[in-house]
Design a protein around this nucleic acid. Structure first.
Lengths: 181, 181
DNA sequence: TCGTTCTTTCAGGAAATAATGAAAGAAAGG
DNA sequence: CCTTTCTTTCATTATTTCCTGAAAGAACGA
């Protein structure tokens, strides 16, 4: 029954590929919805579900993308801290593997988005407030009040996220989560 | 000193405009970073910092955008529940005003993104898991394990966010926040 | 019913964003 | 050094996304 065994294995492998492709495609789409470029999200997805490090060429093959595209997005992912490069001794090629721990992945993304987007936004708000808080017209007052409310909210959110992200060390977050989940 | 009073008022008004423009521009940029189209974010910003309802034409003028663009994004914002239309009696024109309470705005955005993006993503993950959890190869196992971890995490996050968003009624969230902020 | 005012739609065009591939650049071994 | 192998860059091209403006559609009052 070697033949039927092989057939079975092929069918299983096809099902796995299909599910992996689905996952990668959808993860890419989700990336776009959150302002992350599709390819970067797809590479991340691929590495997330592969239990070994992959070379640039393997990634290019799998996702059918060009070398330049692969290289650029791999660099970005390394910059985000979501993947790391692995050098195997005796080989010149660079391999990449993703952090697999979902909680760590989450914390990394939060930390980066805080740094890249939330902090700068808070600074813009503060700047706007500085430039208008001595104005006396009602419209100016309305503007300043709203900017202050937003600013306070974002600082609060930033603080909460900092705590969450630092929670490996503390035990507060898991504990607070018990009441929230 | 009427002239210098007028000059002063003009200068103040210019400063206000500049700050408002800065705010709108940056809010738009921030929108893009989070996968929301720039114009939609800008209209939202404009309505957030204006303490009266604006007509489509006023918005077009202020942001220098076309009628079609304004109309489409206003509809989307209404769909998100971030703004509402106001009909003044005796007038045929439609006016729009934004929800100003920052916490409510946050809850609305969270609720919508949960519904539009998080829930569907969870469903995709479940589907992938269903399609592979009987496969026996090591790669299949690795895939399924990782998908399950992601799925569990997202369900947890979804649950936490639901609690947070429903917190107007409960007092758990403000209380939990005390420990997180 | 008609004219007016306002809203919606959508095909086509414009702008922004991302991808390609070829060439240049490193790194390492011989 | 020189060759080979791999990586990076970047001008060009492609794709996606967004916007415009004109035309069609409603709503309403007269």
């Amino acid at each position: 029954m070697t033949a039927s065994k092989a057939t079975l294995a092929a069918a299983e492998s096809a099902r796995l590929s299909a599910a992996r492709d689905e996952f990668i495609t959808q993860w890419g789409a989700m990336g776009s919805a959150w302002g992350i470029n599709r390819t970067m999200a797809q590479i991340h997805a691929l590495l997330l579900i592969t239990d070994r490090a992959l070379s640039t060429d393997e990634i290019m093959d799998d996702l059918k993308i060009s070398r330049g595209n692969a290289n650029m997005n791999l660099r970005d992912l390394v910059g985000w801290g979501l993947i790391r490069s692995v050098i195997r001794k005796g080989e010149r090629k660079e391999y990449f593997e993703a952090e697999k721990d979902v909680w760590k992945v989450f914390c990394t993304i939060v930390r980066e988005r805080k740094r890249r987007e939330i902090r700068p936004a808070i600074n813009v708000l503060k700047d706007c407030i500085d430039r208008t808080d001595d104005l006396t017209s009602p419209e100016a007052a309305a503007f300043t009040r709203q900017a202050e409310a937003l600013c306070e909210f974002m600082e609060m959110a930033d603080g909460v996220l900092s705590k969450v992200v630092r929670s490996q060390e503390s035990s507060i977050v898991p504990w607070a989560l018990k009441f929230l989940k």
